[in-house]
Design a protein around this nucleic acid. Structure first.
Length: 508
RNA sequence: GGGCCGAUAGCUCAGCUGGCAGAGCAGGGGCCUUUUAAGCCCACGGUCCUGGGUUCGAGUCCCAGUCGGCCCA
């Protein structure tokens, strides 16, 4: 709270002054920690099981962490300390600490960082606890954390949190507090890091080179989206934040790097909802001499590796109550067949007007100006995607929707492209990359015409990229994977904001 | 962009047809040397999201706005 400040905050400031008056520095410089809470507990239990304890007294430890609860009983006090590994109970006794140090516990608050030294023991109630013989304040907390009280259900053994930090808006705005008080939130982000690390392991092991390409680009491309625009002062020119890495990574294939990948932020200037954040993380990888069919098997192998990373072995996960099985091979379902099967849309039997009527029937906007492929895309999103729960490759998309993909062998209106769909969402998007510079120029020109007709998401003509293709790009398979959405899937989170540490928000 | 819902103590929430703004937890003062949502007693704590309006009287009703959530586009 601003202004006069709350009673709680005022009290903490008073304690801070009192500490300074006593010559105690409330913001320490270091503490020599010998273990984490979880290690200390495990070590005690091992010693106990081996019968090594004398008078029930365990190892000496020095722990650092945050005070998360406090129970005073006159001349004895219990507290809980939380560090990165979890929580452990602390036991302070006046006789052991001395009167002065014991009384100064009054100057501590929940949320303070402290260091404690003492030995481990097990209480009458059976809890492994640190019998504290000395403690130090490491950092005073001047603002109360929204910590709830925890209870363990005696029947199920589950932790029940009373009160706590539930306001969704404040949890996103103050992620530091969310992380500090909600262990399951910490778990999600730890898993996210493991998943991204597993992606690197997988690609590194297959000889892919991790690279970094420009985020600030003079032209943006590689996807259909509106960009963020910024300005370079010294060059006095506009620059765009990238919407995709694609065109730069393929330039590296031209350069002979053969297998490259990048994991990085892309930026798209569009709405925010459960599956869209303006900045998001994308994995793209490209492999020379491969076509989209080969890339499907790479994606299957990658998914197996990632699912196993999360589950520890099994290939089934639950997403929002639905069990998903990632055992390959995943079905290959042609785009037009999917439209027919799930949407009852037989594209070959319907003229543009019939398609347009079908799109209108579910109330889309700007239907009159849509091209035939755009209409098909609308129908696909509306009628087909919700049915695609179990992993499936949708293959062979209409050419106009895919200006960077190679025409399908034997079907020139289609391209060799697949999307891996899971839980009704696109997880991966991939092509046999278009490496014919003459065809690529024509595709760009078609995009420019669409742009001139008002399609703000149509791509721009990138002359330098054409020049690169003119030098010669080998046949190449490329894949893009939205990392945030994949992490949502693998951590069973309903919103992209639950897997981004600091999601984009309007200012308070 | 549209619809619905929400915003009240530091936190989690209640507050009916308009009538003195509440509870639990946290925080403060007591008692308590193995407790664990510790317990018992006492006192304290409010820009009811913001701005208008209706009314004798608004947390409550009306209008506009801010921020957020869900659904739709």
């Amino acid at each position: 709270m601003s202004g006069r400040g709350s009673q709680v905050i005022r009290t903490r400031h008073q304690k801070l002054e009192e500490l300074r008056r006593l010559g105690i520095e409330p913001f320490a410089y270091e503490y020599d920690v010998t273990a984490h809470a979880a290690e200390a507990r495990a070590a005690f239990e091992a010693a106990e099981a081996a019968g090594e304890l004398v008078d029930g007294k365990g190892q000496d430890v020095r722990l650092g962490g945050r005070l998360v609860s406090f129970r005073t009983h006159g001349k004895v006090t219990f507290a809980d300390l939380q560090d990165a590994s979890g929580r452990i109970q602390l036991y302070f006794r006046r006789n052991d600490l001395g009167e002065k140090a014991y009384d100064r516990l009054d100057l501590l608050d929940i949320g303070d960082w402290i260091g404690v030294a003492g030995h481990l023991f097990r209480t009458r109630m059976g809890e492994v606890t640190v019998h504290v013989t000395s403690y130090e304040l490491l950092a005073k907390s001047l603002r109360p954390l929204p910590l709830g009280k925890e209870e363990v259900d005696p029947e199920t053994g589950e932790r029940i949190v009373h009160g706590g930090f539930a306001d969704i808006e404040q949890r996103y705005r103050q992620r530091y507090a969310d992380l500090a008080v909600n262990p399951h939130v910490r778990e999600v982000f730890i898993k996210r890091t493991r998943i991204v690390r597993a992606m690197r392991e997988f690609l590194d092991a297959r000889g892919y080179l991790e690279v970094e390409t420009p985020i600030l680009q003079p032209l943006y491309g590689g996807a259909s989206a509106r960009p963020f625009i910024t300005h370079h002062n010294a060059l006095d020119m506009p620059l765009y934040l990238r919407i995709a890495d694609e065109l730069y990574l393929k330039r590296l294939i031209v350069g002979g790097l053969e297998r490259v990948y990048e994991i990085g932020k892309d930026f798209r200037n569009e709405g925010i909802d459960r599956t869209h954040n303006p900045e998001f993380t994308m994995l793209e990888f490209y492999e020379a001499f491969a076509d989209y069919r080969r890339m499907m098997t790479v994606v299957e192998d990658l998914m197996v590796h990632l699912v196993r990373t999360v589950t520890g072995g099994p290939l089934e996960i639950t997403y929002q109550g639905i069990t998903l099985n990632f055992q390959p091979p995943y079905p290959r379902l042609p785009y037009l067949d999917a439209l027919k099967e799930y949407g009852n849309i037989d594209v070959n039997a319907m003229d543009d007007a019939a398609l347009r009527d079908a799109v209108k029937s579910f109330g889309a906007e700007d239907v009159e100006s849509m091209s035939r492929p755009k209409l098909m895309d609308e129908l696909f999103k509306e009628l087909v995607e919700p049915h695609l729960q179990q992993p499936v490759f949708i293959i062979d998309f209409p050419l106009e929707l895919s200006p960077l993909a190679k025409p399908k062998r034997g079907a020139p209106d289609l391209v060799e492209r697949f999307e891996l769909m899971v839980a009704g969402r696109e997880i991966a998007n991939a092509f046999s990359e278009l490496n014919d510079p003459i065809d690529q120029r024509q595709r760009f020109e078609a995009q420019v015409r669409l742009r001139e007709q008002g399609d703000e998401e149509a791509q721009t003509l990138d002359e330098d990229y054409i020049r690169a293709l003119e030098y010669g790009m080998p046949p190449t398979g490329g894949v893009g994977i939205g990392v945030d959405r994949l992490v949502m899937l693998l951590t069973d989170q309903p919103s992209i904001r639950d897997v981004i540490l600091f999601p984009t928000m309007r200012p308070e």
